[in-house]
C-alpha cells in the first residue's frame, strides 16, 4: 500500500497543492478507461476523419486531396441508394417502433393478467443476433416456400408478396425484420416510463370523466417526454449502425438496392480496397450521429451542469 492510501497521508496531501501521485491507485485503475477514451475513441475517430481527406487506397497514406473523396462519395450511385435506404428505414422504423412500442406498453399497463408472459414474448427477439433475425425472415419471406407460397397454396394464385426480390420495396422487407426485433425494447422502456407515472393522475382523470385514450394522448404522453426523447436517441443512433441485418437478410441485394451506409464503409475498406472512400463514408456516418446527438445533449444538459 502506498503512502497516499493511508488516510492521514491523504489528509495531509489534500492541504498541499494537488500532485500527480495522489490517489495513485484510482488513476492506475482508470488507465484502461483513459486509454480507451483517448486512444481508441478520440484518437481513432480523429485518425479516420483526417485520413478521409487523403487518397488512401490499399494502405492509408498522407496524400492530402481536400474534399475529393467526399465529392466522389456523393456522386456515387451506390452511396446515394444507401443513404436513401437508411432514410426510409430510419423514418419508418423510428415512427413505427415508437408507436407500436408505446401502444404495447400501454396495453400491458392496463392491469392485465399474464403480463409478464406477454412481455417475455414481445422482448425475446431483442435477445437474438441480427444475423439470426435476418436469416429467419429471409426464410419466411422466401417467395417459393414462405408466406407468398403458402397464400398461393390456399388458392389465391395471384397473391404477390416478395419484398426481398423486388428492388423497389426490398428495404421494407428489412424493416419488417427490424421491427420484429426492436419493438420489444422500446416497449420495455415505455413500460418503465408508464410505471413511473403517479397513480393519482389516473384517479384524477377518472374523476374528471376523461376517457382512457384521451388521458394517454393529453396527459400521459406529454408527461413522458423525457422517456420518449431517450428512446428516440437510442433508436436513432442504433439505426445509423444498421449493418448485420442487411448482410444476413439480403446482402445488399437484389443488385445494390438494399445497401446501407454502414455496409458501404465496410465494403470499401475491406473488399474494394479503397480506404479513402471508406473513411469519407464513415465520417458522414459520424456527422449524422452528431446531428442527432447535439440537439439532444443541448436540450438535456444545456444550461445546467452535467451530473
Amino acid at each position: 500500500m502506498s503512502h497516499a492510501e493511508n488516510p492521514r497521508g491523504a489528509e495531509r496531501s489534500a492541504r498541499r497543492p494537488r500532485q500527480l501521485f495522489r490517489n495513485l491507485n484510482a488513476k492506475f485503475a482508470s488507465l484502461p478507461m483513459i486509454l480507451t477514451a483517448l486512444v481508441v475513441f478520440v484518437g481513432g475517430t480523429a485518425w479516420t476523419v483526417a485520413h478521409s481527406f487523403t487518397k488512401s487506397r490499399l494502405l492509408p497514406k498522407w496524400d492530402f486531396v481536400g474534399f475529393d473523396q467526399y465529392e466522389r462519395l456523393w456522386n456515387s450511385n451506390r452511396w446515394m441508394i444507401s443513404v436513401e435506404n437508411l432514410m426510409i428505414y430510419g423514418v419508418c422504423s423510428l415512427v413505427l417502433t415508437m408507436v407500436l412500442g408505446f401502444t404495447l406498453a400501454a396495453l400491458l399497463d392496463r392491469k392485465i393478467r399474464f403480463e409478464s408472459a406477454f412481455r417475455t414474448i414481445f422482448l425475446y427477439p431483442f435477445a437474438l443476433s441480427f444475423i439470426v433475425t435476418g436469416l429467419a425472415w429471409q426464410w419466411i419471406l422466401n417467395p417459393d416456400f414462405g408466406l407468398q407460397g403458402v397464400v398461393r397454396g390456399w388458392g389465391w394464385e395471384s397473391f404477390t408478396f416478395d419484398p426481398l426480390n423486388n428492388p423497389d420495396i426490398v428495404i421494407f422487407g428489412v424493416l419488417i425484420a427490424g421491427l420484429w426485433q426492436g419493438t420489444g425494447f422500446v416497449m420495455v422502456i415505455m413500460l418503465a416510463g408508464l410505471r413511473g407515472i403517479d397513480e393519482d393522475i389516473w384517479k384524477a382523470s377518472r374523476v374528471d370523466g376523461i376517457g382512457v385514450a384521451k388521458t394517454y394522448v393529453r396527459v400521459i404522453i406529454p408527461m413522458m417526454r423525457p422517456v420518449f426523447v431517450t428512446a428516440l436517441v437510442i433508436i436513432a443512433s442504433g439505426i445509423i449502425k444498421l449493418y448485420d441485418l442487411v448482410v444476413a437478410q439480403t446482402n445488399g441485394g437484389p443488385g445494390i438496392s438494399s445497401e446501407v451506409p454502414a455496409k458501404y464503409v465496410i465494403n470499401y475498406m475491406f473488399q474494394a480496397q479503397n480506404l479513402g472512400q471508406g473513411f469519407a463514408a464513415s465520417t458522414m456516418m459520424l456527422l449524422s450521429v452528431i446531428i442527432v446527438l447535439v440537439p439532444w445533449a443541448y436540450l438535456e444538459f444545456g444550461g445546467k451542469k452535467r451530473g
Binding site: 484510482a26 480507451t36 475513441f41 479516420t48 475498406m269 464513415s282
Partner: peptide, 29 residues
C-alpha cells in the same frame, strides 16, 4: 469513490464515445 482531477472528463468522453459509429474506429483498431 475515488474521484481525481479529470476523472469525470474521461468518463464523459467515454460515454460520448459509445455513440460514435464503430465504422469510424474500425480501421485504426
Amino acid at each position: 469513490n475515488w474521484k481525481f482531477k479529470g476523472s469525470e472528463v474521461f468518463f464523459t468522453i467515454l460515454i460520448i464515445g459509445a455513440f460514435i459509429p464503430y465504422q469510424t474506429m474500425i480501421y485504426p483498431i
